[in-house]
Simulated scan of single mutants.
Amino acid sequence: MIYFGGSYAKNSHVLRSSASGSPLENPWREISWDTRNKDELLQYMKNFQPQNEEVKAIRVLLYSPVGAGKSSFINSVNNVLQGRMTNDALVSNIASDQSFTKKYQTYKIKKEKGNFYPFVFNDIMGLEDGDGRGVRTDDIKLAMKGHMKDEYKFNPSSPLSEDDLDYISSPSISDRVHVLVCIYSANASEMRSSVLQKMKEIREAASDLGIPQLAILTHIDAACRETETNIRNVYRSKYLKKKMTDFSSHLGIPMNCILPVKNYSHEIQLNPDVDALILSALRLMVDFGDDYANKL
Rank of each mutant, 00 (worst) to 15 (best):
G134P: 06
S72Y: 07
H13N: 08
Q269C: 08
A186I: 02
N75Y: 00
F4N: 00
N87E: 13
A206C: 13
N52K: 08
N233E: 10
E151G: 06
L165K: 13
N256Q: 09
A68N: 05
S32D: 12
L61E: 05
E112K: 12
I216A: 09
D221N: 13
F247A: 06
V120N: 03
L209H: 12
S12G: 04
G126C: 03
K200Y: 00
E112H: 11
A68Y: 06
L259Y: 15
S71V: 02
A223N: 07
Y63W: 05
A9R: 06
L240N: 09
L251C: 03
S161D: 08
P156L: 03
P159M: 03
T227C: 10
V80T: 07
E151Y: 12
N294A: 12
I124A: 04
D273R: 10
D291N: 13
Y152E: 14
N187H: 03
T229Y: 10
C182F: 09
V274G: 10
T227E: 09
D164K: 06
E54V: 07
L160N: 02
I94H: 09
S170G: 03
H178V: 15
K153G: 04
T229H: 14
S64I: 07
N233V: 00
L41M: 10
S157T: 15
I278M: 12
P171N: 09
L15E: 02
E53R: 14
K198G: 02
G289R: 06
S248Q: 05
Y292E: 07
L90K: 13
K198E: 07
A186S: 10
S158Y: 14
N11C: 03
F4Q: 07
T218R: 12
S170C: 08
Y264H: 08
H147I: 07
P27H: 05
Y235D: 12
S64P: 00
I216H: 11
K238Y: 07
E25A: 15
D138Q: 13
S265Y: 15
R36S: 13
A206Y: 06
S76W: 01
M191D: 04
A188L: 08
K110F: 00
P272V: 15
D34C: 01
N230F: 05
S157D: 11
A95P: 04
